[in-house]
Amino acid sequence: MRPRGAGEWLAYGLLYLSIILVTLPVAAVLFIVISRGYSAISWEFLTAMPRMGMRAGGIFPAIMGTLLLVLGTVAIALPLGVMAAIYLSEYASRGRLNRLIHLAIVNLAGVPSVVYGLFGLGAFVLFLKLGVSLLAGCLTLALMILPVIITASEEALQAVPQSFREASLALGATRWKTIWNVVLPSALPGILTGAILGVGRAAGETAPILFTAAAFFLPRLPKSIFDQVMALPYHLYIIATQVPNISQSVQYGTALVLVGLVLLVNASAIVLRSYIRRRRSW
């Protein structure tokens, strides 16, 4: 690249500037949260119940709540999403229906998270009478991450070479046997990447669990799937806006745990994906 004239120098300068401005916020968020939050992090902070109206003690129930929510969400969304992806990649013909399903997926991905929250409230909490509960929250979050899992899984399935399927079918295997024994194992790492991305998304979302699962303050762990839970993102929202006279280090400490958790999950997805790309021999 060799810019010619002042106009082109300016143009390239702006391109470079844009990249700096785009990468800066990530660095800034990390820097701010780590530098102001690390002092709060201690064994007690991570494993103790909150005390004094959440101004002291730990955030253990929020961490556990988020883990439980994520676990339940993936348990619901993964099988459903993978099956939908199998249908799209292996069974559906390239016709209108396929296009319609893809449109539905795109639109599911675009539904605002707070609208998922409303749907969860109307459908799961009230209509199905699950109440504000872990289960209702998991169902709501599962619906929300479904597009993520379907898209990643479908991509992984379609990356499996056609020759693998043909070889299996030519040996007399049925279509399902071929999918189960040949296609799915080859696509597994890609599907896993999608699942991890879904986990990251579910762990960080607040709005969908606002009216479906989250408890303002619950200094114990949930007893059943019909119990309310605390959750990290909601807890951060609460202590940032609703609790007066709280020390900033508790706030930043909570933010650090949340950001650390979510970025760790996403980084592992990115690493896994690049590992797959390098290892893939076909």
Binding site: Y237, L258, V259
Partner: peptide, 17 residues
């Protein structure tokens, strides 16, 4: 990957910052 990280930061964290 940095851009993906930006997408991954929870909205409540952006709100907090």
């Amino acid at each position: 990957p940095v851009v993906e990280m930006l997408a991954a930061i929870p909205s409540v964290v952006f709100g907090f910052i």
